[in-house]
Amino acid sequence: MPKYDHVIFDVDGTLIDTEKAVMYSLQKMLKIDYNREVQLSDLNFVLGIARDFCIASTWNHRYRPS
C-alpha cells in the first residue's frame, strides 16, 4: 500500500469542478432508492448559491458602471 505525505480535500470545487458529478449521482440515487425521476435543473438547490446568481450579484455590486 502506498504511503502518502499529503491529502488534498477539494470540497468546494476550487481545484476540480465536480458539480456535474454531484448532480448526476444525486439524480441516480433518487431513481434507484426512491424511484423518482428528477431533472438536473430541479436539483440546483443542493449546490448552494447558483453560479449565475453569484456572478450577477458580484458584477452588479462591485462593477456597476458609473
Rank of each mutant, 00 (worst) to 15 (best):
L40C: 00
D12E: 14
I55W: 02
Q39E: 15
D5T: 10
A50W: 12
R64C: 06
S57H: 11
M1V: 13
V38Q: 02
D12H: 12
S57G: 13
L15Q: 05
M29N: 13
S41A: 09
T58S: 10
V11I: 11
A21M: 12
I49P: 05
N60F: 09
I8V: 12
M1Q: 11
D42H: 05
R51S: 01
L26N: 08
D33P: 00
D5V: 05
Q39I: 03
Y63L: 12
D5W: 01
F53A: 10
D12C: 14
I55E: 04
V46M: 09
E19C: 06
P65T: 01
N60E: 13
M1A: 13
I8E: 00
I49K: 14
M23L: 15
I8H: 02
T58C: 10
I32E: 13
I32C: 02
D12F: 13
Y4V: 10
T58F: 08
L40Q: 04
I55H: 06
L40H: 01
I49L: 14
G48V: 00
Y4A: 15
D5L: 06
V38E: 02
T58N: 09
Q39V: 01
E37P: 00
G13F: 01
V11R: 06
D5A: 09
L40I: 02
R36L: 14
K20H: 07
T14Q: 07
M1T: 12
E19I: 07
E37Y: 05
S25A: 06
S25D: 07
E19H: 12
E19D: 10
F9W: 12
L26I: 15
G48M: 01
E19S: 13
A50H: 14
F45I: 08
A50T: 13
D17H: 06
A50V: 09
K28Q: 12
T14V: 08
M29A: 15
V22F: 07
T14Y: 07
T18I: 08
I16A: 08
L43F: 00
Q39A: 15
I16C: 10
W59G: 09
Y63D: 06
S25V: 02
D12P: 03
Y4T: 06
Y4N: 09
T58D: 08
L15P: 05
Y34E: 11
V11H: 05
E37I: 04
A50R: 15
A56S: 14
W59I: 15
